[in-house]
């Protein structure tokens, strides 16, 4: 895989005012890069800010502070219409709830083609139709579905429509915010296989946000773990699962039930106690193993290095 950076997130902050004096720091100083053609998984418990991160990157929210650099250009800050349009074409989103994210009063054809209309990608009606039909087939539906309304589809089919809509403007980067958590297990596998296939064929880059850790492990090349608005650990998917370093990651991994009764009988769960951290200084993001970054203080860093740097 090329190590060319597609997206760089620098000190991204998203604070919400919830009252005159109270501020919720949903995302508080994130730094990470997403390489071209990879899938970056973002995991964490509800309320940790992973969805807010996705929405801030794509400018559904204006960031409080920080930069998102896409292909070398900052996407936040003042932009004119043209720039915004160009950027919107490059970056698309797939939403969690396939029931709420499709307009019930629009036909599938118009839902999928809306982006094409905005960006003027189809010259005439015939071309537009042909493109929609092609997209429907790409995502495993057929062209007869174009004239139907969203309520006529099952959850898995709707999620496919959402994927087709995202693909309509030929993006290079897709943010998938819990795209499978509303679906049944067998349908989840269908959608995940589809996402993987599309990535192969079109060279897409994904930011995959989810709380189902086994699925994230399966689909991602690298994974970031979030806790209370901060990234606590970033590593290659295998490395993260085999050598979790931050105690929060360890506790999260130890809590996943696996479909294996023997393993379940012997599983031991750790609980994470945030008070056990060294508080002598502000923790920073440090590289403990090659490509494996952990949020820690310098004291903890030395400890982690001793514990984990050499183990295979």
């Amino acid at each position: 895989m090329s190590q060319e950076k597609l997206v760089e997130i620098k000190n991204l902050k998203q604070h919400f005012k919830t009252g005159r004096h109270s501020v919720v720091k949903a995302v508080d100083g994130l730094n990470f890069d997403i390489f071209k053609g990879e899938t970056f998984g973002l995991v964490g418990e509800s309320g940790c800010g992973k969805s807010t991160t996705g929405r801030t990157i794509i400018r559904l929210y204006d960031a409080t502070d920080g930069e998102v650099i896409f292909n070398g250009e900052n996407v936040h800050g003042k932009k004119n219409r043209e720039d915004l349009k160009k950027f919107n074409r490059e970056m698309q989103m797939i939403f969690q709830d396939p029931y709420a994210s499709l307009n019930p009063r629009m036909k599938v054809e118009d839902i999928i083609a809306e982006g094409m209309d905005i960006h003027g990608l189809a010259n005439n009606d015939k071309e537009r139709k042909a493109k929609v039909h092609e997209l429907l087939e790409t995502v495993g539906l057929n062209k007869e579905h174009a004239n139907r309304y969203p309520h006529e589809f099952s959850g898995g089919q709707r999620q496919r429509i959402g994927i087709a809509r995202a693909l309509a403007v030929d993006p290079s980067f897709i943010i998938a915010d819990e795209p499978i958590s509303a679906l049944d297990v067998s349908i989840q596998a269908q959608v995940v296989n589809l996402l993987k296939k599309l990535q192969h064929e079109k060279g897409l880059t994904y930011l995959f946000i989810a709380h189902d850790l086994s699925m994230v492990k399966y689909i991602s090349d690298r994974i970031g773990v979030m806790y209370f608005g901060k990234l606590v650990e970033v590593a290659d998917a295998d490395d993260l699962y085999n050598h979790p370093i931050h105690p929060y990651t360890q506790s999260l991994l130890s809590a996943i039930p696996l479909p294996d009764p023997d393993y379940e009988r012997s599983r031991e769960r750790f609980t994470y106690n945030p008070n056990n951290h060294d508080t002598s200084e502000e923790p920073e993001f440090r590289e403990v193993r090659p490509g494996h970054w952990v949020l820690c203080t310098s004291k903890e860093f030395d400890f982690y290095k001793k514990e984990h740097a050499t183990t295979k």
Partner: peptide, 8 residues
Amino acid sequence: LLGSMPSL
């Protein structure tokens, strides 16, 4: 059902 769940 069993096959559609990824194992770690």
